[in-house]
């Protein structure tokens, strides 16, 4: 074992290798590693942001759904109220109509009955006159029938 030129050659090789590593190897390996670390950080931040965005959107969707539900309830209530009103209104209209029809019918009946009574009176009058004529033709006796005839005439006029 002795110390010789190998020492200096080794130093030269060592320095060259250090230079090579520092110049080419180290930055070219660390660069992509740092870039990857940056990308991962960005990705994680984006994921975090996505999570909060999702929560926010969910909250917003909940609010919208809640509002829609409220609106729907309101509409249903309104519709029910309106239906009740319509029913009440229809009932009112119907009973009014019924009363009117009833009145009309009653009036009709009254009119019919008075007309029938008039017809009847006229007929009875005619019959009475005919009857009286016949009676008169055969055995008219003023004394016996005058009272009857008077009564009859009064009845007809009262009619």
């Amino acid at each position: 074992m002795n110390i010789n030129l190998t020492l200096f050659v080794q130093m030269l090789v060592f320095v060259t290798l250090i230079w090579f590593t520092k110049r080419f190897v180290w930055p070219m390996i660390l660069g992509p590693m740092d870039e990857r670390a940056r990308r991962i950080a960005v990705g994680l931040a984006a994921a975090e942001k996505g999570k909060t965005d999702l929560a926010e959107a969910r909250e917003r969707a909940d609010a919208v759904i809640r509002e829609a539900r409220d609106r729907a309830t309101q509409i249903v209530d309104l519709a029910a109220k309106r239906a009740n009103e319509m029913i009440e209104e229809a009932k009112g209209t119907a009973s009014g109509e019924a009363a009117r029809l009833l009145t009309q019918a009653r009036a009709e009946v009254a009119r019919e009955s008075s007309r029938a009574r008039e017809d009847l009176t006229r007929e009875v009058g005619r019959l009475a006159v005919r009857g009286a004529a016949r009676l008169l033709e055969r055995e008219i006796d003023a004394g016996t029938h005058v009272e009857l005839l008077d009564k009859l005439a009064a009845e007809i006029t009262n009619g």
Binding site: N2, I3, N4, L5, T6, F8, V9, Q10, V13
Partner: peptide
């Protein structure tokens, strides 16, 4: 001698390089 800088270890240099 113990130090002789005209000598070189070819095997060490070869494997080192």
């Amino acid at each position: 001698g113990v130090m002789d800088f005209s000598v070189i270890h070819l095997d060490s240099v070869f494997f080192s390089v």
